Amino acid sequence: MNPTHLETLLALVEEGSFEAAAAALGVSPSAVSQRVKAMERDAGRVLVRRTSPVGVTDAGEVLVQAARRMALLQAEAESQLSGRLERVPLSVAVNADSLATWFRPVFAAAAAWGDVALRLRVEDEAHTLALLRRGDVIGAVTREPRAVSGCEVVGLGVMRYRAVATPELRARYSTHEGMDWAHMPALRFGPTDALQDDDLTGRLGRRVPRRRRISHVPSSEAFVEAARAGLGWALLAEPQARPLLLARELVALDDQVLEVPLYWQCWRLESRVLGQLTDAVVAAAAEIN
């Protein structure tokens, strides 16, 4: 594998276009195009999808992961020679609830390592693994206990969720049989929020109405505020729900507690910085246990 070609492929994925990659590398877009064609010729297959933003094929994903590994090892080698880290790119996938609660001490830990760059990708914990498989990130907080090929897994603990709403919303949709889950307005983080949908399916089975009043709020902080405003009932992580329940701004809709086990998956690589990142994530996650 040509290191220059791998660097070019990584720049394409990170910058999103041939022009932006060329600017980042300090070469012309034509040079970037020629390098990609040379890579594809050597590989005997298409590696890059000429879309906007640029994407990669399955074969391209393999090379992107190799490029990220090379970049990390190269940065660490240079730091050992120069005595300091110039720039170590640490791309991490994390779900919004974790980022808003227990994950934040990782920032302080990373700040003490030198000129380390953190690049966070926020995705539902059921989808972060796809980013790891594609080589878009070197580590991910995920629900999946089975290791991705070339990765190692560390258990982080269990995130607990409660179904909550404002007292007014609970009163309005209470019946003699319990909550009217089928008709009560609901909050979802986004269209891929399987956690909330699976929870409701578990409560109603096949009786979940196709058309319901669902508000999508793709921000963890705004999601909490929407619940406080009475826009709908929500599954909130216990660290977010606890102070609002104590203040009676929100109330629990039942006694059920949804437990979601979390895992840290990262590349199996002899890297000091990656080891420090893993230690920092595991230490921060001790908050949720």
Rank of each mutant, 00 (worst) to 15 (best):
R162K: 01
E86Y: 06
R172I: 01
S220Y: 03
P185N: 07
A43K: 10
S215P: 04
A237L: 03
A20H: 09
R146V: 14
R228G: 05
R50P: 05
T166S: 08
L258I: 12
A130G: 07
D136T: 05
A100R: 10
E270Y: 01
R45G: 00
A71I: 05
S28A: 11
G205W: 04
T192K: 07
G230A: 14
W264H: 00
H5C: 02
P105V: 06
T57S: 12
E168T: 09
A194R: 12
R272V: 15
A108S: 13
V106S: 06
L246V: 05
G178W: 11
H127L: 14
F189A: 09
E259C: 11
S52I: 10
H216T: 10
G150S: 12
T175Q: 02
V148K: 04
E259D: 14
R49C: 11
I214V: 15
V116F: 00
S220I: 04
G205C: 01
W264R: 01
T128L: 02
D255S: 13
E15W: 02
A163G: 01
P261R: 07
T192Y: 08
E270G: 09
L73V: 05
V153S: 10
L63P: 05
F223R: 05
P3V: 07
V88G: 06
L6D: 04
A117Y: 03
R68G: 04
G114Q: 04
G60M: 09
R210S: 13
A171Y: 06
A241C: 08
A226W: 06
L131C: 01
E168Q: 14
V32Y: 00
A31W: 02
R207E: 13
D279C: 09
P261F: 11
A96I: 06
L204D: 09
D199Y: 15
A237H: 05
V56P: 03
D42M: 07
T4N: 09
G83F: 09
G135P: 02
A140W: 00
M159D: 15
E259W: 00
V208M: 04
L262P: 08
V224Q: 02
L9S: 03
A117S: 12
C151S: 15
L118M: 08
T175S: 11
V92W: 00
G202R: 09
